[in-house]
Design a protein around this nucleic acid. Structure first.
Lengths: 112, 112
DNA sequence: TTGACATGCAACTATAAGGTTGCATATGGG
DNA sequence: CCCATATGCAACCTTATAGTTGCATGTCAA
């Protein structure tokens, strides 16, 4: 799942590295990160499963690339439905605030 | 953090509910979800911390709203930097594939 | 073919995360 | 004032996840 994949800092760092330079091998990516090669392999597997990273085998080397499908598109597919909700929610908030104001007014009347 | 907040299905459901109707109380949101009120409260706290949900107190009731700042914007701020990487990455992939093709050709030549 | 290198697989550990229960606190209404 | 209601706080349990180590597999190059 995309959000779970992006939720981890190490995985975002891996995406950063692939952003800086595509086609890196597992070994290249693992070197310089403060964790074992196997840990990196796991992260890359998760990124692959989330369709954020694609791979290409060249002999015994596994080359990693940011997925051709734009990450933004994948994410937008998930959050897009909330885009239009914003205005309505704000309206709702406004209404509630007004309700509260009225209630306070009413109380003042009772007490006076 | 936004992605961690969005990574959980229960929290996405809560956003769905607030999308359907803003200004719901903790109790309202908890009713109908297969978990305790306290669990929902924790999720809402995480959504608040991630700036996805804003609250407004009315007496003893806590009203929840999707954050005025569009969720899409928040998310885009995180993934935006990868948007432009796509083309370059594809180019990189293309180059690697061509490299691979050349290697295979060279081998054929050696063997032939 | 053999050795070195690149990756995969599996078992295990530690910590974080989602969930529960029980009790405390604060507000509103009669 | 008192009780019901709405939420908060804290301890605890269970499972998921990030990480480790050790060994197996597969490919290149001499």
């Amino acid at each position: 799942m995309v959000f779970k994949a992006l939720a981890d800092e190490s995985r975002r760092q891996l995406l950063d590295r692939l952003f800086a330079r595509g086609g890196q091998t597992l070994g290249m990516l693992a070197a310089g990160l403060p964790m074992s090669r196997q840990a990196v392999a796991k992260h890359l597997a998760i990124l692959e499963a989330a369709n954020l990273v694609s791979v290409h085998w060249r002999g015994r080397e596994k080359l990693h690339y940011l997925n051709p499908i734009p990450i933004g598109e994948i994410v937008r597919r998930w959050v897009g439905k909330f885009e239009d909700a914003r205005v309505e929610s704000l309206t709702g908030l406004k209404a509630e605030l007004e309700d509260a104001a009225i209630e306070i007014k009413e109380k003042r009347n009772v007490r006076t």
